[in-house]
């Protein structure tokens, strides 16, 4: 029997190469992989959600917990969006979902994102780290006080805040670049595995032939206008 993990890696290698060809311009191979990925992900998400609903809503109603009929009805009301005259029906479950979500988030936000963060900044001035933390928090917050004119001693507070913000943006930019490398590395590790590498090189050659053949002969309809 064929090893399904290996098969997944080989198919993944082909799809990844196809997706990376977008770097040389939009092309039929990148379009195929893009649609393949979107279709598979949509199908998988639908299946997982369907399974969740069947296990945790329909299953419970069948088990005698009839209060779960209400969320099922609310969920079905969302489909009213498909007909413009019935859109108003779908607004009730949307309003309920947004309201519950906001309420739950706000209840805890004050403590975790506001009080907790202020408490985290109330540090003893006994180390360089703590001093940087206190000065950075105060000056960066002060930078956003737009009601005060930027002159006198406040100008220096403002500039220090800007400096801290620029450092933070730099760190975020560097981290984002590193994250993108890690995404590519993750794919390369699978694509260059000894039992998959030969297929990866083969797919690379195949994709190159398709793209060069299509471009030079214009036999692939997509290339005719290019």
């Amino acid at each position: 029997m064929m090893d399904m993990v290996w098969l997944g890696l080989v198919v993944g290698s082909f799809v990844s190469i196809g997706a990376y060809t977008v770097l040389i311009g939009d092309n039929p191979v990148s379009k195929v992989t893009e649609h393949l990925y979107t279709g598979i992900l949509a199908g998988y998400t639908l299946a997982i959600n369907w399974d969740f609903i069947m296990k945790n809503a329909v299953g419970k109603v069948q088990g005698g917990q009839f209060d779960f009929i209400l969320p099922i009805i609310l969920s079905l009301m969302l489909f009213a969006r498909l007909k413009p005259e019935w859109i108003w029906i779908s607004r009730y479950p949307v309003a309920l979902t947004v309201g519950v979500g906001m309420g739950l988030a706000m209840r805890a936000s004050v403590l975790s994102d506001f009080v907790g963060q202020i408490q985290g900044t109330l540090l003893p001035i006994n180390s360089i780290n703590n001093i940087v933390m206190i000065v950075g928090t105060i000056t960066a917050t002060a930078y956003f006080l737009f009601t005060r004119e930027n002159k006198g001693p406040y100008k220096y507070v403002n500039q220090t805040g800007l400096l801290f913000l620029l450092v933070a943006f730099g760190v975020t930019y560097g981290s984002t670049a590193s994250f993108r490398f890690e995404l590519v590395i993750g794919r390369l590790v699978d694509m260059l595995r000894p039992d998959v590498a030969l297929y990866t090189y083969g797919f690379l050659a195949l994709v190159a032939i398709i793209l060069i053949y299509g471009y030079t002969t214009k036999k692939i309809p997509w290339y005719k206008s290019r």
Binding site: Q117, T121, M133, V171, T172, T176, S178
Partner: peptide
């Protein structure tokens, strides 16, 4: 989290959350 999100969550580590 992924590397790019570390700066977003480091304040939570500093605050002990």
């Amino acid at each position: 989290c992924t590397t790019n999100e570390v700066p977003n969550y480091s304040p939570y580590v500093s605050s002990g959350q």
